[in-house]
């Protein structure tokens, strides 16, 4: 029987990023401004450029590498189902591109259970949850927000894996986004998989031809092109507003980059240079089957290594957890 659970001893925190070496250049937008002719396509979606035009991107334009701090974020999660509840190991990594890649890595264990004796627990690692999936998402978004806010310095471009707006996480993410922006940071969110139909739903012809916006972008963009920028505003909460575009830097798949509308407004003159830098980062990573921007890919490497640190089955045995039959059978 599970007695006292103490997960503190298996937490890992490695802080490798030195804040002393940050470069800070006072922000003065200087780039050529993107011409924006906003076209309202629906009550929630408008196009900020010509929706039928594909815009060229230039991966050789990487001046921002020297002018901004560059950060990447990703996480890796390992779940383990025990009779007593779910164990969740969340490894999150923030990397900073200095002379070498620097990283902050934390691997945090959580115990999610519906045992009522934990209903009033004050322990951060042990969560009473009747809806484990919801609690899991809360943990992930907390981890992401904390890791980024604790690490990222002013005047940074932050490349973050996952969407800005989506479900219950939106509130936390938008709040984080605001704080970053207050520090002269440009948070950019990257989405690889989505069945969103925001763009094609506005045009019968497109919705006849394409299954999703990703499908449309993959077919309509050529290598080295991006789509127009689109603005989406949540119909219930106007704070949950984002601007996004599809970018195709490599053969095959397109990816979606999104940012808060306020970010876009504040830094709109820098958008050509930012999309160029994004294209460069896709090319540097160069994985045709799993396209990612380089800072996110490096953060992912560290996050995965974080999970490898721990021999989780042995650890759980020592802590007194008993695996479910399916956990034993299928891992």
């Amino acid at each position: 029987m599970l007695s006292k659970v103490n997960l503190n001893r298996i937490k890992v925190r490695l802080n490798n990023i030195s804040k002393k070496v940050t470069k800070y250049v006072s922000f003065v937008p200087f780039d050529v401004e993107v011409k924006m002719q906003e076209q309202y396509m629906s009550p929630t979606l408008s196009c900020l450029e010509d929706p039928n035009f594909s815009y060229p991107i230039n991966p050789k334009n990487i001046d921002f590498l020297n002018e901004w701090n560059i950060y990447g974020y990703d996480e890796s999660v390992q779940s383990y189902k025990a009779l007593e509840g779910d164990l969740l190991f969340c490894s999150s990594a923030v990397i900073k591109m200095e002379e070498k890649y620097k990283f902050n890595l934390s691997v945090l264990p959580y115990f999610l259970t519906s045992m009522k004796k934990y209903f009033h627990t004050q322990d951060e690692d042990i969560r009473f949850a009747e809806d484990i999936a919801e609690e899991r998402n809360r943990i992930l978004v907390d981890t992401k927000v904390n890791a980024i806010l604790e690490t990222v310095e002013p005047h940074s471009i932050v490349f973050i894996d996952g969407p800005l707006v989506g479900g219950m996480a939106s509130t936390y993410m938008v709040r984080m986004d605001e704080k970053l922006r207050e520090n002269d940071c440009i948070p950019l969110y990257f989405v690889k998989n989505s069945d969103s139909r925001l763009v094609i739903a506005q045009d019968l012809k497109l919705s006849n031809e394409f299954n999703s916006d990703f499908h449309w972008a993959a077919c309509s963009l050529k290598n080295g092109q991006r789509s127009a920028f689109f603005r989406y505003v949540d119909e219930y909460n106007s704070r949950n507003s984002k601007v996004f575009a599809y970018i195709k830097a490599l053969t095959g798949f397109a990816e979606r980059v999104e940012m808060h509308s306020s970010t876009f407004e504040k830094y709109r003159s820098l958008m050509p240079a930012i999309t160029d830098l994004i294209a460069y980062f896709y090319l540097v990573q160069g994985d045709l089957l799993n396209p990612q921007v380089r800072p996110v890919a490096i953060a992912e490497m560290y996050a995965r290594e974080g999970i490898k640190f721990l021999n989780i089955p042995a650890l759980l045995g020592r802590l007194g957890f008993r695996p479910t039959i399916n956990q034993v059978r299928f891992g």
Partner: peptide
């Protein structure tokens, strides 16, 4: 090489990331 960059950037005549040289 810890962070092997893609051969694509050589093909595209792009500069290598200094960090990828570690």
């Amino acid at each position: 090489s810890l962070f092997e960059p893609s051969p694509l950037i050589v093909d595209a005549e792009l500069p290598l990331l200094q960090q990828d040289q570690e």
